[in-house]
Write a protein that binds this DNA or RNA. Structure first.
Lengths: 190, 190, 190, 190
DNA sequence: CATGAATGAGTGTTCATTCAT
DNA sequence: AATGAATGAACACTCATTCAT
């Protein structure tokens, strides 16, 4: 039941937004009553927090698996992380959108917890960029923090427009984005 | 007074979000009454629409001024548009954030109007990319629509993290982002 | 202007009801502002009272003209009064409907004034019925007060369903109603 | 509680009118809160509709019981219907008054539903008049539709003035009204 | 585990009225 | 004679939350 509530909530939060979705809406769709909801969650915010935690913990775990793989070059790791973040939108689209949009409705305390984990993801990318700069895979004059933001912008903003079942496939998008990031769009005349 | 209401609303919408900001909050801060608000705006949504229109119309106008300048190369135009979009966040930060976050609270009809203008901005970028590809400034094998999304991701997502008064100056950010987009981050070994 | 306000108000009060019609609605239709309204009327209720007074005073005056005519029999007078009340709906339909429906929105003091005049109309009918009973025109065993209510029911309720431009003409309605009142509907077997 | 709300609402709607009665007024009198009201009724209009439906359905049902009674002559049926309608005002006075006065505040859709049932009552009377004309109980030259309006005028308008605990008893009123309708008020000279 | 009745604070909105100009 | 800005009290309605059963 807890699982069912979470899933239906994600669906509704994505469609109508957190504030616009009432507990009543959620329990109506599940054909239970409000009492049931409050048996499993102590508040609407706690439900939102659960959704956020599940999303970010899973993502972080999978990212760190990539990061720890010593057989991969820095470039490969970056490419893998881009793939991870883009594919997440394909596979867990609604919860991703909820994650990016509704964090504001958490309490300050909970926002802190989530942001810490989000920062961890960012710092992991920054670190691999630094490594790549040091070992000659990447240009030596980059600002790793800004480059990290550039990568996260590409991936995170894609939830705003990327339709997983649309014309372009997520694998193709990953390839194009990686190509832009690594090679740029300008014609090289040498 | 209409101006004062709009400005205070943008400030509050940015801080607390559209739904979390009540008309009461707005008029309390201005030390007027709700009647005054409704003398100037027929509804809360109409106020939000006014904010959106003002933002997008100004942006579109300035973009088209760049696009029409025949002395500029495609690369220059792209660089100028990146600068335009990034600097907007510096100069009109709060309304930009409201613009990107609260569009959902407009009616479908109004969303349509805004999206049409937003699409125009996107299509203008796409067009200049195509021109650059045709005249040899840009690599010939690009997907202009996706590249456009990449550029918009960089600029639009920056409102999420870029602090205009922080360590990094907006001009510097523009330069780095343009460098990434044009040249990529990978070291060229030739 | 005062006349214009009154007329437009009657029109709107009939269409939407007194409470549902705002001062704003009235002045919008006349393309003036609320200030203008309050220059001519001190309150919304005073406007309603003016409408009521105009209606009832005119009606009462015309009824008393009928009553004082010594050449008319009682039966003729009753028939004339029925015609007067029915035709009023044809000629001054909207204000009649406002009169019958919106009196409740007057203050107690004003309701008293109107009801006094309305009672006068009723008592005038009652008196002519008594006269008719005394002089043998009408059956001697009637209750004049109840008969009066019967007559007023027929005429006053007609505003609820009678459409002046519909199939039946008001003259015909008067004739049928007078026939019912005077002769009844039962077949006489003698 | 639903019953209590309905009853108190009828009482208040009758005293002050639908528009002039706020939900707050209703719940204050019952010493509950607005939330309770909205737990039982989804809107103020829905409450009004419930009142209307209860009134008209009961009336229609009782009328049709009279109409189907084959032992009764047409004249008897008409007399019974007059008694039914008049007594309803005695027994369910307030809801009758609400019924006749506040229908306008229903939505068009709901007005349609109620009017259909109201028309059924009217058509049932019209039919029995036609039968009476055919079988010689009533004068053959009547207009059944207008006569029906006459009867309904007498009964329906009585809510405007008839006080069940006043001088005159409802049985007496029925008798007088039936006498007027059947025999008229004019002295027959034969 | 789950229900359903009830709460109470809050929301956007309306509107008759006032008043300086 | 008319305007337009402003008021403030009221209104229908919403909703997260509580709690006895």
């Amino acid at each position: 039941m807890k699982k069912k509530i979470t899933e239906k909530s994600i669906e509704l939060f994505e469609k109508k937004g957190f504030t616009q979705t009432s507990i009543q809406d959620i329990v109506d769709e599940l054909e239970v009553t409000k009492g049931t909801f409050y048996y499993y969650f102590s508040s609407k915010e706690q439900l939102l927090m659960a959704i956020h935690l599940e999303y970010i913990d899973d993502l972080l775990e999978r990212q760190e698996k990539i990061m720890k793989d010593e057989r991969k070059s820095s470039v490969e790791k970056i490419r893998n992380v881009i793939a991870l973040l883009i594919n997440d939108i394909k596979d867990k689209g609604p919860s991703g959108r909820v994650f990016f949009r509704e964090i504001r409705h958490l309490s300050n305390h909970n926002i802190g917890i989530i942001k810490k984990k989000r920062n961890q993801i960012r710092l992991n990318i920054e670190k691999v960029i630094r490594t790549g700069m040091d070992n000659g895979e990447l240009r030596p004059n980059l600002k790793p923090d800004i480059i990290t933001f550039a990568i996260l912008s590409l991936t995170n903003y894609s939830y705003q427009w990327f339709k997983p079942n649309g014309e372009i496939h997520s694998d193709e998008l990953v390839q194009i984005y990686a190509d832009v990031i690594f090679n740029g769009i300008m014609e090289k005349n040498d």
